[in-house]
Nucleic acid binder design. Structure first.
Lengths: 195, 195, 195, 195
DNA sequence: CATGAATGAGTATTCATTCAT
DNA sequence: TATGAATGAATACTCATTCAT
């Protein structure tokens, strides 16, 4: 157990160090040696846990997307009112981004980067963010969300969310301001809702 | 004149080759040698025109942003009806992206990449895309566009545009389909307009 | 122990190879790749032990100066008679140069070269060759060595020694000839002694 | 004539610029482009006057040695008293070095550097510095200079001179001090004179 | 599992030199 | 002669990855 937790610790330390370096220096300017050093392990150890540097990036990406999805779904009370639920989720999403600045910056930089394998990105979109897809489908069936292709709606969701957190990143003092947060939701919701 | 056009040709050939390679292989997987070879010049020539590889990236970025802005503003008949004008510009923007798949893909990959200097990106947003800012201001004054912070509206614009062209990139057969194109505009406009 | 000696071996092999190449080809005509090849290691190994090519040069320089100083001081019987001791040391110094032609040539080429960091050269002069300084001070106090500034005497020592070994380098057959060796000492000593 | 003097001017400008850069940056850290720029000419012009970069170095070396020799011989009143003449020449040599700090530093750095062709260096030693050789021969014949091999005496001369100017380089405030200048001559002369 | 010395392919950049104008 | 854009060979240094301990 102790050895097991040590292993977990080192693996997690590597992922944490990689996240920080990828965000602050960029993927290519970050050497595996610097990740190992920042994680407090030897370079060889790094390659015991991850076959390649690209794999580290993929794992960081998946872990963050998963953490984001878990945060959204877990302990959320769904009212059944789609707009109400969308509002709740949007606030949660913004909260999460503001609470996790490193992960939020990672989102902004790498959401569409070529440094992450295409398959991994697709996997994240379809399986991890499936709760968004389901919500959109429900909303369309209830005539509350506009009857546009779901894929277009999903991309639009994603695009508006990135735009919102970029705004709050550039204006950190507005992160707690209800008016601006509600404005960002209103923009989003007006786009999505059926009229 | 001949010598001048030769110089221009080589510099332009380097930028063209770089654009194609950056999109297809990624910035880091593209060696300066391969850019020079694709451009039909010697490696030394490349560094005669651009001090560093990063500078090439910056110049490619600025050139495309500028070309996009020129395309949007030039020969556009502004009706004075903000919604009408927004529709015209949105269609033009989608047309441009579909007509220039390489440049569109460059947008998607590098709009937020760390491979472009922060200052260069800011310059592009503020000076080159200033026509969008102006339109938003007018729309707000006329009570047609929602009264939200302009910076938030600008980011939202950008985010929805990227989402739209990502959708049409993934579904090329829908690029000419009026229903989907209008759907993408409707999403965008419903977000922006005052209600 | 075995791993330790392997490490030492590789580092030493690099220094040995560098010495030979620097002397025979010059610092700039010697590529790091050629040093590595001559040392029987990979290019990466070279940079694992020395941060830069210049650092290799500095280490070669310091190692030779130290070896020279060790050779001069170790197992030398000091009689207390300054002239006698000076004679013994001068012969030892010439012997060393003749026995180590590569290191002697290195002395001649690089003693004043800009390829060695100024700080490194100063360090060698002051700390490593301190035994010469002490001898000069003693001789002056005893009224045996001329009462000139010690720094001038030290430079003169150094200059005459380089001149002597250049002479024996150009005339190798005279290296064992007592008359010429004594002549070189006499020149030196007549300069130094009080009259 | 005007074109001729222009040519001379440019050639001289190149040599002047090269001297300054070689001394301050080192031979290899000095690019031909930087020499051309400092000389105020185009890179191509440089190669009209000198076939290679090494040739520039050789010409700088020869020009300085020649200028030094001319300065020593021209307008020197030889008294016939060898010691008196040696004293006069030594003072002149030190004067020249102090008056021409750039050329003096060039001496110190490149007198034995591998950056100058062997043949060129030999030529300088034998033909240009022939007046020193002649003086030594005369002194030996008159029994005033020690009866050691002339080549050894010549090297010793050279070595002591370099040592002296290195001392005055490191202690510029002593350059005009008669005591130290006389000390440097005394060291030199005691070595050379017959006893 | 952990280590870190060793590897060698890969790359941005430099620079002496050429040559068409 | 003078120019400076163009050349492409040369090189110091990096870095993902391996493996013996």
């Amino acid at each position: 157990m102790s050895s097991n937790s040590t292993t977990t610790d080192k693996k997690q330390a590597i992922l944490d160090a990689a996240l920080q370096l990828f965000v602050n220096k960029g993927f290519n300017a970050t050497s595996t040696a610097s990740i190992a050093k920042a994680a407090g392990v030897a370079t060889g150890t790094l390659f015991h846990h991850f076959p390649t540097k690209n794999d580290i990036m993929n794992q960081v990406f998946l872990a963050i997307k998963q953490e984001f999805a878990d945060n959204m779904v877990t302990s959320t009370q769904f009212s059944g009112d789609i707009e109400q639920d969308a509002y709740t989720l949007w606030q949660k999403a913004i909260d999460w981004a503001i609470a996790q600045p490193l992960k939020q910056l990672f989102f902004l930089q790498y959401s569409m980067s070529a440094d992450i394998d295409v398959m991994i990105r697709k996997q994240a979109m379809t399986s991890i963010l499936s709760f968004v897809v389901e919500l959109i489908e429900q909303g369309k069936q209830q005539g509350i969300i506009a009857n546009f292709p779901s894929e277009l709606l999903l991309e639009n969701c994603h695009g508006q969310y990135l735009a919102a957190i970029r705004f709050f990143t550039d204006n950190p003092h507005l992160g707690g301001d209800k008016i601006h947060r509600d404005a960002s939701f209103t923009l989003f919701w007006h786009a999505m809702k059926a009229q």
